[in-house]
Amino acid sequence: MIVLLPPSETKRSGGDGPPLRLDRLSYTGLTALRTELVDDIVGLAADVPACRRALGLTAKQDAEIARNAALMAAATLPAIDRYTGVLYDALDIGSLRGASATRARARLAIGSALFGLLRADDPIPPYRLSASSKLPGRPTLGARWKPVLEPVLAEIATQDLVVDLRSGSYAALGRIDGAVRVNVLAEHPDGHRTVVSHFNKAHKGKLARALAAGRSDPDDAAKVAAVARKAGMQVERTGNDLVIVVPA
């Protein structure tokens, strides 16, 4: 089983690993496009106003542009330690020990607008590029990634069940046939349900922890749902689609 996470806008600074080597990341079939995108955002960082527009930043976020400018020289961290935020707080990879930690690092993967697909221990620097970013004079990131990323994802899906926890914009960079998809809905006292926005990340992080660190290795959606229920989550299943239901 592979648990596929979304990235986060926020990323931990610093690191103790050597500078980025694109050819040493997992899924070497993605190296050519990774190289193009790194060149694009490093070059764009030299034009701060254009970079702000492309990445949707304000002047108060110019430190993000500086990160991109220094991307090839910056120290690295394992990807699973680089990303921060609500989902990663709930996952809390740093608290796992022994076999649980080993299983989690083997099962976790992360979608990325810059790198396409990463495994947990792939060393990366901090950077800024979102699935919705619009690099000047270039096709959309979806148009660039789909023909390259989807064959890689398809190959993974022939070997392992993929539990896809990515948000819509990142899922659009490369679809996966047969993946288990997860949504989070809030149930109100009158019974009607609404989409959970911000806090869906916390519930997905909790699910990711249960799946990645647990002893069981689900090979279908029903078994994924069973793991979620064992972790205390209310889950409904229709085919490969799971809904986590939480109180409003």
Rank of each mutant, 00 (worst) to 15 (best):
I80M: 08
P136T: 00
L30D: 06
L37A: 05
A46F: 12
A50E: 09
S112L: 04
A90H: 04
C51A: 15
L37F: 00
L96G: 08
A63F: 15
C51H: 06
G116V: 04
I124V: 12
L129Y: 04
D23V: 12
A70V: 07
Y88G: 09
R105D: 08
A131N: 05
T84G: 14
R82Q: 04
L37I: 05
G142S: 11
I41Q: 01
A99Y: 09
D23C: 12
A70H: 11
A32N: 13
L108V: 07
S133T: 03
S133Q: 00
A70L: 05
K134H: 14
G14S: 08
P125C: 06
P78M: 06
G17L: 08
A109M: 13
T35A: 15
D92T: 02
R97H: 13
K60T: 11
D16G: 15
P126V: 03
K60I: 05
K60V: 08
R34H: 10
G56W: 02
T140A: 12
A59G: 12
K60E: 14
A54S: 03
S95W: 09
L96E: 07
L87V: 03
D62S: 11
R24E: 15
G111W: 00
S95Q: 13
A46E: 15
V42G: 07
I93H: 12
P18M: 05
A109T: 09
D122S: 08
G56N: 06
L117G: 05
R138V: 05
L22E: 05
R119W: 02
S26D: 06
N68Q: 08
D122C: 07
A73R: 15
M72N: 13
I41R: 01
L91D: 01
A104M: 03
E64D: 14
R97G: 15
Q61P: 11
A99D: 15
A63K: 14
D92S: 12
A106N: 13
Y127D: 04
A50P: 06
P136I: 00
K60R: 15
G85C: 10
S132V: 14
A63H: 15
L135T: 01
A69G: 13
T58M: 11
A120P: 05
I41K: 01
G111A: 14
L57T: 00
A120N: 05
D92F: 05
T58Q: 11
I65P: 02
